[in-house]
Nucleic acid binder design. Structure first.
Lengths: 384, 384
DNA sequence: CTGAAAGCGCTTACAG
DNA sequence: CTGAAAGCGCTTACAG
């Protein structure tokens, strides 16, 4: 039987009778089966795998050969974990759905860093996306995560909103963890930057260039999907620590230059993607007369450059734009931006986690690393 | 106590006495503890979570409230899995170490696709890197993977070398799986392209433009780390199915034009990274008089463009280069290349896996999707 | 060095 | 609708 399932070269084919029969009969092998086949006790099989010194070398070889012969793939990780408390996997916990995680250059860079650390080469890495539904209490939900249910020996947690209940659960479970960027929790190991200061620098750059009518593009202040102009109330109630810190930097730097909150035109994109960024940039440019824009991410800033072209605005003659992150695309786009070491954050987070998991520090000691950031001048900003 | 751990703003700080004491005393909570606190049996607690209809609504609420009150985070995934056989996670199994996976644009695109499918939003996604050590038998090792030990309910397997023993183990364990790109295994669900035909097209393009002295840059034919010119013997013994298929396409297309194997200058980079690619391009350009290069990936091709600049070669006047993949950077680099739908591969792989895991197909039925590829003409190739 | 028992935290039959 | 028992596959004490 061959059934077309679409109009390209695609088909459903039936396997041979033989192979499907074979798989139906076989049962899942356990240490008990190996023990039986080798004529030893089940714990002896366990020792053959995990305690080479505990049994004689000949016995050990006999057991392992028997295991190979009958097709036993080695100790089941679940049984092992349940008893020993260790899984052999670490987790990365993030707010967004899986579908967005890999569109976010920061997330990719973080993953790269964890990989480059070389500390978890033998370890599986599990991605735990949290849903961002709001609970009745107004706080984000998503407490129902496998991450706190024994599926990871340690966690790297990144950009969760303030007050997310999962953090408490992780702490209660005593799962070793390191937070990257947000939220900032007292007495937790943490890797990040000074978002407030970096944002001040970003805003000050435009102010120093003489800009006074400035727009602000912010990714997201709260995972409720809201978009549009940001009221002072919404700003103050923001749960996304990272973005709210940056926004605070903009607002205070502007205030120092005599520009009030309402004079800043602050627009929230409601998401991290290019699409959301472009929509917000469109609203901003469409409704406000501005000469400069600061964005809380390069993705937003690059979306803004694209929209500016649609408005026939020349960059930087008609509009100056400053980004945040310095992702690879920022270079070719000539974007002036704040550089932060995203890959290195991953490396250090992995190192911290490794140290904590290895019990190198008393439980009360927390590791903290704050990276420096730099303003990178390119061609998207100029004197007004 | 505050100890500097480096010369930036980094420190180790001690948590409050109170919090460290609290955590030392508390024990890990299980259903037994909830049952005790709620005055019900342990299975009743289980039913409260998993079988809402099995107990009365008031009982259920009482149990869940008690659980929340004492800080129980919900059923432990390990105990649950051990009994039920389901984990709640799918796995992505790949050959390379974690450190390389996120440097590979194809891998990122595949992950994006899995995410974009929207089918595993509630599921954890575990990355299982396999080590690429060779065993005594000359076959790649890395059989000691958690992937076959119960840590994933289903697997997406990508670009493993032919004959990798883990595939047999996955089949023996009857873990649902879909293979992306390689290896091609009889009767397995598969998502890929026709690598042989795509490579023929790539080579034919240079031939049609009049090139006769052609170099070939191949990522890796065998995970043994070897680099340099590729003998016919090594070509024929290649275990990396993807690359060997492409190479076969080059060799046969060249033969059709009267160019022998030895007239082609074939260089193996030994890895997937930019560094390996640049080194191979350097050797190739340094030792051979050629007018055109085909590469088995855009990463190789882009590395080649960079090296060509160091040799003061103008592209395409002095050298034509054709890539493979059409990664985002290929666009800005003006690279002529073979386009393949990498994100879509991930989407379809996820769909296939979901269907297989849901038992929508009898076990003998395999799903297959072969995507079409296209030659994209840009500015890196021209008539000789 | 080896074996038999206990138990990790659950769910699934099996009785009531 | 509810409870008590069995067992998923292991490792870790505890005896010999």
């Amino acid at each position: 039987m061959v059934t077309k399932i679409d109009n390209q070269k695609s088909s459903i084919a039936t396997a041979t009778e033989k192979s499907s029969k074979r798989t139906t009969i076989r049962k899942k092998l356990s240490m008990k089966d190996v023990a039986e086949a080798a004529g030893v006790s089940q714990p002896t099989v366990s020792f053959a795998y995990n305690r080479p010194g505990r049994i004689s070398e000949s016995q050990r070889r006999h057991v392992l050969e028997t295991a190979e012969r009958i097709g036993y793939p080695g100790p089941n990780a679940l049984g092992k974990s349940l008893r020993s408390g260790k899984v052999g996997a670490i987790g990365l916990m993030m707010m967004d759905r899986l579908s967005l995680a890999f569109d976010d250059p920061s997330m990719i860079a973080l993953l790269k860093g964890i990989g480059h650390s070389g500390l978890f080469e033998e370890t599986a890495l599990t991605l735990f996306p949290l849903n961002h539904l709001l609970t009745a209490s107004g706080l984000p939900g998503g407490t129902d995560s496998l991450a706190v249910r024994g599926l990871a020996d340690g966690l790297i947690i990144t950009t969760l909103p303030n007050g997310h209940p999962i953090i408490t659960q992780v702490q209660e479970r005593e799962i070793p963890f390191v937070i990257v960027d947000a939220p900032k929790i007292p007495n937790s190991s943490f890797v990040g930057i000074d978002d407030y200061e970096a944002a001040r620098t970003q805003m000050r750059h435009l102010l120093d260039l003489g800009h006074r009518r400035i727009g602000v593009l912010v990714d997201r202040l709260n995972p409720d999907g809201q978009t549009g102009p940001v009221s002072r109330q919404r700003f103050e109630a923001a749960t996304e620590a990272l973005m709210s810190e940056r926004l605070r930097g903009y607002v205070e730097a502007a205030a120092d230059a005599g520009i009030s909150y309402n004079d800043l035109k602050i627009y929230e994109a409601g998401g991290l993607g290019t699409t959301a960024g472009q929509a917000a940039a469109f609203s901003l440019l469409n409704s406000e007369k501005i000469t400069g824009i600061v964005a809380t991410s390069d993705v937003m800033a690059l979306g803004c450059l694209r929209v500016a072209r649609d408005f026939s605005l020349n960059i930087p003659q008609d509009l100056s734009v400053v980004g945040f992150d310095d992702i690879p695309e920022a270079v070719s786009a000539g974007l002036t931006t704040i550089q932060q070491p995203m890959v290195e954050k991953g490396v250090i987070a992995a190192q911290f986690l490794r140290q904590i998991m290895d019990g190198k520090h008393p439980s009360g000691v927390k590791l903290v690393k704050i990276f420096q950031t730099h303003l990178i001048l390119r061609s998207s900003t100029r004197h007004i």
